[in-house]
Design a binder for these strands. Sequence first.
RNA 1: AGGCGCUUAGCUCAGUCGGUAGAGCAUCACCUUCACACGGUGGGGGUCAGCGGUUCGAGUCCGCUAGCGCCUACCA
Length: 875
Amino acid sequence: MKEELSTRYEPSTFEQRLYAFWEREGFFTPVVDRGRPKFSIVIPPPNVTGRLHIGHALVNTLQDIIVRWKRMCGFNTLWLPGTDHAGIATQMVVERELAKQGISRFELGREKFVERIWEWKEQHSTEIKDQLTRLGASADWTRERFTLDEGLSRAVRYVFVKLYEDGLIYRDLAMVNWCPRCRTAISDIEVEFRERNGKLYHIDYPVEGSDRRLTVATTRPETMLGDTGVAVHPDDERYQDLIGKHALLPIANRRIPIVADPILVDREFGTGVVKVTPSHDKNDYEAGMRNNLPQLQVIAEDGRMTEAAGAEFAGLDRFDARRKVVAMLHEQGVLVKIDDHLHNVGVHGKCDTDIEPMISRQWFVKIEPLATPAIEAVRSGAIRITPQSWEATYFNWMENIHDWTISRQLWWGHRIPAFHCANGHMTVSMDEPPSCPQCGAPVTQETDVLDTWFSSALWPFSTMGWPDETPDLDVFYPTDTLITGFDILFFWVARMIMMGLRFTGKAPFTQVFLNGLVRDEQGQKMSKTKGNVIDPLDVVNEVGADALRFTLAVSASGRDIPLGKSRIQGYSAFVNKIWNASRFAMMHIDKELKDAGPIERDGLRTVERWILSRLDATTREVNKQLSAFRFDEASNALYHFFWHEFCDWYIEMAKPVLLGRHGGDADRALARRVLLEVLDRSLRLLHPFMPFVTDEIWLKLGGVEPSVMIAPYPIGEEVLEDPDAERLVSAVKAMITAVRNLRAERGFTPKDRFKLYVSGNTDRESNFFREYAYLLIELARLTEVVVGGEPAAGAHQDVIEGFHIAVEFPEKVISQEQIERTRREIEKSEKELASLDAKLMNEQFVRNAPAQIVQNAQTRQAELRARLEKLKQNQ
RNA sequence: AGGCGCUUAGCUCAGUCGGUAGAGCAUCACCUUCACACGGUGGGGGUCAGCGGUUCGAGUCCGCUAGCGCCUACCA
């Protein structure tokens, strides 16, 4: 072999080259074969609104880790990518673009405007693919989908018609959340509540034929123009006599009835009198129905006042109207007082505009029949949500779910497949009928489009060709795992479960992993206005995709992730470490992987058995943690093993042999072979987390597979476990550390060398220490190691992991600091010993505690006693 | 208002089945040693938010209190 790594780690020199190679070789594309164990996952389709942010980097890194891991584990793996048309959001950004040129969508007209959005979509879905590519996402681009694709649109129409025929989709006049800016209805979950300091206006409504007045309180005085009643509680003695009479509505000078409504009115709250505006408040709407009050729409779809509000208000913006109403009330002397009032205001989450409750004709999905089986799927364990605490939230929402408003008065989206004729007939069908089936008149299609989430809900199967029975569906559906942000649990996950169960009879996935939000170092939400946004592509350009991916993985426990530059820097140092350790290893490795042959376990030395045993433990840990979606634990285990066991200790321990300072050719050959083995396995273990750097290095090791990404993932192997080697090497490490510690504490420099005495407790152990004396000499920088001898008086004595050691220093005054330290050490040990003594004297402890715990305590007690005895001699 | 979660080293967080606390970063001291100064070696640093309970033993289990976060619903 002998293709060397460049001296410096420069990810930009190979990342894009490698990705192109993987894609060209078809490594991302699975075979369509039912006979093979498969693993499939669909991407949460990013909105085509713009570039991907760090949250996308997280969710796609986590998916890629699982996907690459499963692929290496031998599964026929599909990761299906794509994008979402994102109705309102995309329409908004394109509108904003047009506004820069001074054009409104209305000037352009629906057809032209939609054309513009398609142009936007083409540009941005390409950009999104590029970004995912730079991250290393091993998605099968040959299967890329878009929610407005013809195939997906057909699935949408099919589902709509079917649900309509089954009576689960209906069209009705109802009070909905209306966004005056977007001029569309939105569903309940798209409304976000913002806490706001508002005013509570108290207004007197005179009672007709009396000098009494009813004082009402409202946060929205402009709606009084649409009041058609005043309500009191039927049992409220203050107002009982007024029920059935009329009040005179100020400004409008309208007679409105005083009604009794025990549901709307809380006697204890305020004055106990409520103004009723059936057209602009959800509760008033219902109260209006109950009391036969007329509806009077005073606010139009664009948020301006209607003619019905009165000539002087017509055309006025609702907030201007508010000011005007207040001024007029004040003039008329009926404005009693204005209180400050902290309340929650519903706004449209996408554009921050105050929601206007509005009566309008919309399409709805009757949700309960869909929700019930979806609840059961999670309750029965058919679908498992991780972290599990989210299941409670899921149940809570699903059990209190309201019908889903699915129609939107937008231009960008799936048009509702309903067709109207001039005679008022409506036909719902997948394709446009040539004429009205009832009367033969020409038909026009419904102009409303569907909520984006309606098509997203079908994503796991619509992307595979459903409703046709395709080979992809047969092989890859249902999918296995869904990885997404918790913020779309209701929007997306719940709806996929409902639709999947309804239309395929199967849960669309069996596992859901919900990741947290990426925040900045201070735990603040990232936002453009705060200027704390981290662009994933900037990071990739700066430190490489691997460092970013590893940082995200090591931070992902399921909770929110505080991400800062310093953290990324820390893990980019780790990638650099991997590069350099590999560079060192490759200077010594003399065989290619495919020619290396199996390792003869019988000939292995203790240090080699030790590192292989540690590697095996790490292998088990990584597989176990990945199974549980503990990306943090899995990546941490690798970090610790590679850096602090392999680099810090094994490589240092192997150097004397590799560099010819110790042992013979056979030893060196063995060390080289094990070095190759550990590097090979480490790279494979690391690959899902760091696909680029691992393959760049691994390809130079000369394995049989064309890339590490399709090499087998290591699994635990019992033959590699070696507790005895771990115990002995651990003792050697502790001794080395102890000597280094003493050197530093006593003020010696690394050049000063001492003589070490070590005692094994058995012949075997003594032989071990003799055999590995060279390690102690090299790594602890000693002149000599004496096994089993008597140290001179005044040598520093200690007991390390059960072995007695003594260090002889050249003449040197012990510092006051060192004396202090020894004293503290003794004090600490004595304290621990005292507590152990007390514990072991306690009959209840000895009787009740498990035998193992008691024995551990006894062992520790003996150890402490021995150690204290030695430490005291040092004083 | 209801539900869920959090509070552990200066910072960000792990901590499994209860057995006297760990990591990374930061910090301090020493070291330009033949893979790496994006490095090496060593050190310092914690009343586990507070109170009470269960237990031989509580960061861990139970209850209460305080502070913070999120979700759902929303009172005019």
